[in-house]
Nucleic acid binder design. Structure first.
Length: 647
RNA sequence: GCCAGCAUAGCUCAGUUGGCCAGAGCAGCUGAUUUGUAAUCAGCCGGUCGGGGGUUCGACUCCCUCUGCUGGCUCCA
């Protein structure tokens, strides 16, 4: 007999070789019907894998991430089975589960496969799923595994097996398909009730662009049809919020072939929005002791030789421009830090001045491969809300704290409430690949960890993810649809101070090396605005809305009064426009609603007589009549409230 | 850069197996209308069907090529 301990600490006795499914059945039939896998002593197992000694067991269902993972992983097998039946002789790469579903990389050989085939494969999958195929785990020797896949002609599988150790190789067989697989899997394909193959794309074998490109098919499955429908609905919603679509509709930005791909053109409304964001951050930074600096868009090639960027990125950058006479070479600046280092170097510094914080909304240009460009989130020219802090190693902790304050102010003002942090530290196994002294690294890493702890940040620490020049902290937000985006970043840098020979005179009258901290709360304005658009579905908070209100005169007769209201509100820094078309009010309201303008002010005879406006709020409807002054107060209060920096 | 797909008016899209002057709605312009909480009516303007080459009696439609876009891959100071 063995003892199974459940998460609630209750213990149950079973015969040796019991499996999680049987334990579930023992608890309730209903539970058993939902068990996809089980966590046995912290490791995810098949629900039908025999347990031979005392163990902690947690039953996993669709509600658990690991349950979903098992389901999707099994779905990948099911898809491979369907593909093998439909396209005999294809070869398989890898087929893992991913955050939302799964994929399988397939070498289709001579077959031409396009999106049209996806429906066919889906159909076959559903057919196979209904057969309730059981996933059977088999331990197999390396030699036998190699033989099986060599006979089958699956060279990708044999390559994978060659990298594995004998004794740790398992196969899973379901229906007509057997795959090299670590598992775990769901008990049977019966759980897979709804299937959607979402896309098809090329993917290099093992991510290596020098190797063969396989066809990757993405899909997602659900235990209930209804959940698939909800998922598809969510995708629809995401599509509607796509910043590229809204950017066009709301006239925020555009692209032009003539200007060049990946080079956004900000339209007046987008520029207004962006300016508000910049002003907001500038104000916050000013209060936090940042000094604005301005640097040119190009820099001499020597600058980047000093910084080391030339050696690392020179070949894959926009190539340098030359002076006509001397042939001197200049790069478009791909980052602002080298320029800022030279500003620091423009005069000697005392320890008493530190920390020095140089801030610049610096526009940088990076050559991105054409296939990688995407709306505003991946562009070739963008503006960083950059700043570089020059400080002593002992000041790192306080500086991190202060930067986190700024980032939190911004996220709060923009209603990003779900924030996660990734702390990237050195690989403790491989310390020599990093620049900077061991002592400094330890100090900085400890400081970052402490700050995260003190702030109660939802932080995940990744070892080995640090840049060679220093540890960093990245901020991720979840938007209104639950999608994750990486935005702000704080990075410690020991490299550039060294390369630029940055120094300060300490209290000991000796030269010392400052530490540099790169930080950008938004990351880039372009990317941030893109995320913001999708987060709020184009309904910007009042303080950011390019147009905060629109005046809708009932008829031409009230045009003059509208202009008077516009002027009065303008004096109070409230932005608005007039819809002076000879349209009916209903039409004007409809158009204003579609433009997502926060307030509509309807003015006619009544309003003109009493000096008021009739207020309608976007998405809410009629709020009643306000005096102009009361309306202005209401707007300004809301703006102040949303951009308040304390609490 | 690679794989796959797409490219028709400012926007969203029609356009049959290649066949007369390429269509619609919205937007724009003009006129009428002077309007009270989600679409007033009429007329007009607007396209070398992404660029170039080819096949054909004939190409928006078929082929090649370039450019751009989309979904992935690779990359990201």
């Amino acid at each position: 007999m063995i003892t199974i301990t459940l998460p609630d600490k209750s213990k149950r006795e079973y015969a040796d070789g019991v499996n999680a499914l049987e334990v579930a059945k023992d608890i309730s039939e209903g539970l058993a019907r939902n068990v996809l896998a089980a966590k046995v002593n912290g490791e995810v197992w098949d629900a039908n894998r025999p347990i031979v000694q005392d163990a902690d067991v947690q039953l996993l269902t669709w509600k658990d991430d690991e349950g979903k993972a098992a389901m999707w992983h099994s779905s990948a097998h099911l898809m491979a089975e369907a593909i093998e039946l439909l396209f005999p002789g294809v070869k398989f790469g890898i087929g893992p589960n991913i955050e939302n579903g799964f994929y399988y990389d397939v070498d289709f050989g001579e077959y031409e496969v396009s999106e049209n085939e996806l429906v066919k494969i889906e159909g076959k999958m559903l057919e196979l799923a209904r057969e309730k195929q059981v996933f059977v785990r088999k331990d197999i020797s390396k030699a036998d595994a190699l033989k099986y896949f060599t006979d089958k002609g699956d060279e990708y599988k044999t390559e994978l097996i060659n990298d594995l150790n004998d004794g740790e190789i398992t196969l899973y067989q379901s229906g007509y398909f057997t795959d090299l697989c670590r598992g775990p899997h769901i008990p049977s394909t019966a759980f897979i009730k709804a299937i959607k193959l979402t896309s098809i794309a090329g993917a290099y074998w093992r991510g290596d662009e020098n190797r063969k490109q396989l066809t990757r098919i993405y899909g997602i499955t659900f235990p209930k049809k209804k959940e698939l429908d909800e998922y598809l609905l969510m995708l629809e919603e995401a599509k509607k919020r796509d910043h590229r679509l809204l950017g066009k509709e709301l006239e925020l930005f555009t692209f032009s072939r003539k200007v060049g791909q990946g080079l956004p053109l900000w339209l007046p409304k987008g520029a207004e929005l962006r300016e508000k964001l910049e002003q907001f951050l500038k104000k916050v930074q000013k209060e936090a002791g940042y000094k604005p600096v301005i640097t040119p868009h190009i820099g001499n090639v020597d600058l980047y030789k000093t910084s080391g960027h030339f050696q690392k990125y020179g070949a894959e950058s926009f190539q340098p421009i030359k002076t006509p006479a001397e042939g001197e070479e200049f790069f478009l600046k791909p980052m602002n830090c080298p320029h800022h280092c030279e500003i620091y170097n423009s005069k000697p510094h005392s320890y008493k001045e530190l920390p020095i914080r140089y801030a610049e909304f610096g526009t940088v240009y990076r050559y991105e491969q054409s296939g990688e460009l995407h709306g505003l989130t991946r562009v070739r020219g963008f503006t960083q809300d950059d700043a570089h802090i020059f400080c002593t190693p002992d000041q790192i902790k306080d500086e991190f704290k202060a930067v986190i304050d700024i980032i939190e102010i911004i996220f709060k003002a923009l209603d990003f409430n779900d924030v996660m942090v990734q702390i990237s530290l050195r690989d403790p196994e491989n310390k020599q690949k990093y620049i900077g002294s061991d002592e400094n690294w330890e100090k900085a890493e400890a400081a970052i960890k402490e700050v995260a702890e003190e702030r109660g940040l939802d932080a995940k620490t990744e070892y080995g993810e640090a840049a060679f020049y220093g540890p960093k902290m990245d901020f991720m937000v979840k938007d209104a649809l639950g999608r994750k985006w990486q935005l702000g970043t704080i990075q410690v840098d020991y490299n550039l101070p060294e390369r630029f020979d940055l120094t300060y005179i300490g209290s000991d009258n000796e030269k010392h090396r400052p530490v540099m901290i790169h930080r950008a709360p938004f990351g880039s304005l372009e990317r941030f605005v893109a995320v913001l658009i999708e987060h709020c579905a184009g309904k910007f908070p009042l303080w950011l809305a390019p147009e905060q209100y629109i005046l809708l005169p009932i008829s031409e007769k009230y045009q003059a009064y509208s202009e008077k209201v516009l002027n009065l509100l303008n004096k109070q820094n409230i932005r608005g426009i007039i819809d002076d078309r000879s349209e009916k009010t209903g039409r004007k309201i409809r158009d204003a609603e579609l433009k997502k303008i926060p307030f509509m002010l309807i003015v006619g005879e009544r309003e003109e007589l009493e000096g008021s406006v009739s207020v309608r709020r976007h998405g809410q409807g009629d709020l009643g009549t306000f005096s102009i002054e009361d309306f202005a107060v209401m707007i300004n209060e809301e703006v102040d409230d949303l951009t308040a920096q304390d609490n």
